[in-house]
Computed example of a mutant assay.
Amino acid sequence: MNARQLEVFRAIMRSGTLTAAAQLLHVSQPAISKVLRHMEDQLGYRLFERAGGRLHATPEAELLFVDADRVFREIETVRDLAIRIRERRVGLVRIGASIPPIFSVMPHALTAFQGRHPEVRVVVRALSAEELSEAILVGEVDLGLTLSAIRVPMVQAEVLATTPVVVVMQESSPLAGKAVIGAPDLAGERLISYGSHADIGPLLDSAFERAGMVRQVQTEIAMAISALPLVQAGLGVALVDGMLPWASFPGVVARPFQPQALMSLSMVTSGTRPASRFVREISDDIRAAAAHWSAAARP
């Protein structure tokens, strides 16, 4: 049994006669009869009984029609999708991003993009830098946003903005009364932060060394959002990126860290696959959103 036979069978079931089925499929009536005979021969049972000049479906045909109709409705859906894609009315964009740009950049970018293309499906996945580079390489995502450097061949990175490291603490902390916090202010505090192996780690270590201190991280995290419940629970103060909207989270405040340490927000794409029209468009929206965030974040 092939797709053409199923198409003819479905047309006969829906129209009730060979002539009407032929008109529906824009072929001759003998052609419809021939396809039906071959199909019944292959199946080994009759699909229609002929009486009074009309075809009457057998019980076997009624059973077969349920799935045949479902299959062709799905084919019609795919055909319609293909036409809409050709007409550039629908598409798919897959984005991988770390948590901070999902909070700060993606809402502005998606508002602009989906305002122009409401039918385009956008998939946003929260990924670490390691996961993101792999997803870009194998084609699971079209572009990514990360605060960590990706040094992988065939992955291109474009710096969009920088964000300073901040100190996040409970609202009740004595440090909350300071406008700026330096390394000496953190003496005696339990520190939640990135490890020395992270991109920003050596810069933070150096800041502490210049103050005659050693940056001792009691709780090491890979993503800034991981520090939120820990700080809220009173487990320490966090030295993390400032791209998350810390002021919107209950019970915590953020203060600038001095000397200033900057982390870079990069947009990463494949260096081997051409970007689709929609990926190029949303890339421009992300650039604009990053510039908007950067301007709003300036003191």
Rank of each mutant, 00 (worst) to 15 (best):
G144E: 07
R70G: 04
T272Q: 09
T272P: 00
R37Y: 06
H38I: 02
V180Y: 03
S206P: 01
A31M: 07
P59K: 02
A187N: 01
A198K: 14
T58L: 01
S248M: 12
A291C: 02
L18Q: 15
V217W: 10
E189A: 13
L137K: 08
M263Y: 02
G53P: 08
A291R: 15
H197D: 15
L262C: 03
V168D: 03
E76H: 03
E158G: 01
Q260Y: 00
G52R: 12
A129H: 10
V214E: 14
E220H: 06
Q170K: 11
V240S: 13
G212K: 08
L147Y: 11
R89D: 04
V35Y: 03
P101R: 11
H26N: 11
R255H: 04
D67M: 05
V167H: 02
Q42N: 12
L92Q: 04
V214K: 14
P118I: 09
L230T: 04
M39C: 11
S264Q: 15
M213K: 05
S294N: 10
A297G: 08
F48D: 11
P229V: 07
V217R: 12
A290D: 06
F278Y: 15
M267R: 13
L147G: 12
A82F: 01
A157T: 15
A227I: 04
L110N: 04
Q258T: 11
A289I: 02
P274C: 01
I200R: 10
D205E: 15
Q23F: 00
L127V: 04
P274H: 05
D284G: 09
L203D: 15
A198C: 10
A57L: 01
T19Q: 13
A295D: 14
G182A: 08
V168G: 04
R54G: 00
R10F: 01
R54W: 02
I102N: 05
R73L: 06
P118S: 10
G96F: 11
L36D: 02
L239I: 15
R46F: 06
I75K: 04
